Simulated scan of single mutants.
Amino acid sequence: MDGRRVSGRRARLRAAGVATMVALALTGCGEHRGDVLAADAATADAKSLNEALGDRNRPRDAATIAATEILGEARPLAPPEEGSTVRREALAWSGRVSGDEHATIDVRFVASVPERSAGSFGDTGHSAGEATRCYRYELRMYRETSYREIDCPSGAAPPPPSAAPVPKVPDDGSARLTAVLRTATPQTLAGKVRAAFPQEWITVDTTTHEGALVAAVGVPAERDCLLLVRTPAGRIEAPGYDRVWLEPGEIGCRTALYTAPPR
């Protein structure tokens, strides 16, 4: 009888011990899990940014890329981590994406996860947590962006970079070119169009074709092109064309878009 009592007491003690260990284990898992979730969020956002930067096909300096494609408001995380955010900070930027040149941008990701209470049995919830991760991105023309983790520097981030204006045909370009075409002759066409668009980043191509005056004005690197024709009857027309012909290796922004389009 005494033996059975001792055995029962031992069984109850073992069961209580197991329950205590399970409770401690569950509590321990949740105690610092907020920091783990925050670290995972920062790492995931770094990968997402690398995918978004992707394959570069426009010339840009590092400051412009950082200002327009990396920085912004802190991004909220998707459920079930409502209230969590990841903030990006540009730490350093240099170079440009153009030809054989490359741009380098260092980014700090600061993730914040609020405390969440357990919702059901087996769900321990988690504590509030924060994590910081830093990555270096290298961008090259016509190549996929690459990135790697780096040590985070101490101290605050520098003032955010500013974007440089993107070269483009002026907003009043159509009006300018129309005015030139109305008064130009075959002999004065090229000079008048260049005078109307003196910017060094703008290309000008002119010709005469079957009695028509043709002018193409554009920024090839941006696939920005204005093509107008003055017909023999004096009308100003904007011929249509497939914009794929503006891509590198194609015709580009030239009068051949009208005089000799691909078949």
Rank of each mutant, 00 (worst) to 15 (best):
E69H: 11
L228Q: 14
E210L: 14
G122F: 03
A111C: 15
G34Q: 12
L257N: 08
V244A: 11
A212T: 01
F109L: 11
E51Y: 15
G122A: 03
M21C: 03
R108G: 00
Y137D: 13
G234W: 13
S162R: 07
L227H: 13
G155V: 13
A157W: 07
G3C: 07
K192Y: 05
L24P: 06
H32F: 13
T68E: 15
C29H: 15
T206H: 02
T43H: 08
A103T: 08
G218Y: 12
T104A: 07
Y258I: 03
T178G: 00
P158T: 11
A23E: 09
D171E: 08
R194D: 06
L53A: 02
A46N: 02
R14T: 13
L246M: 11
T185R: 01
G17A: 04
G240H: 07
R140G: 08
G72Y: 11
R5H: 02
S127A: 04
G173N: 14
G54L: 12
K168D: 14
R10G: 01
L227K: 01
P262A: 14
A233I: 11
D123Y: 04
R136Q: 10
A195F: 12
F109W: 10
D2S: 08
G17P: 00
G129P: 09
E89V: 00
R87E: 02
R116C: 04
D55G: 12
A11I: 03
P198I: 04
R4K: 06
V180M: 03
E82K: 10
H102P: 06
S94E: 09
A215D: 12
G122W: 06
D35F: 10
S146A: 05
P232W: 10
V166A: 08
T208A: 01
R58K: 08
V6I: 03
V107Q: 00
T68I: 06
I150T: 04
A74N: 01
S154T: 10
V97G: 13
K192R: 12
P80A: 06
V217T: 12
Y135A: 11
S120H: 06
G3V: 05
V6C: 12
L227E: 04
V229R: 00
T27G: 05
E89T: 00
V214A: 00
Y137N: 03
I236S: 03
E144W: 10
T207L: 00
P76H: 07
R148P: 10
G119P: 12
P79D: 01
I202W: 09
G95R: 01
S94H: 03
D55M: 05
V113G: 14
L213T: 15
R230P: 11
R143K: 12
R263A: 11
F109R: 02
T124K: 11
G173T: 03
E149I: 09
T132M: 01
A175E: 01
H209R: 00
S7H: 04
D35I: 14
D123C: 09
L24S: 04
P167C: 01
S94P: 07
A215V: 09
C225W: 09
I105Q: 12
P262L: 14
Y258C: 03
V113N: 08
E81Q: 04
G72Q: 15
S117N: 06
H32L: 01
L213C: 02
D123P: 14
P59G: 13
P232Y: 09
S120N: 13
R143A: 03
A233M: 07
A195V: 05
P160E: 10
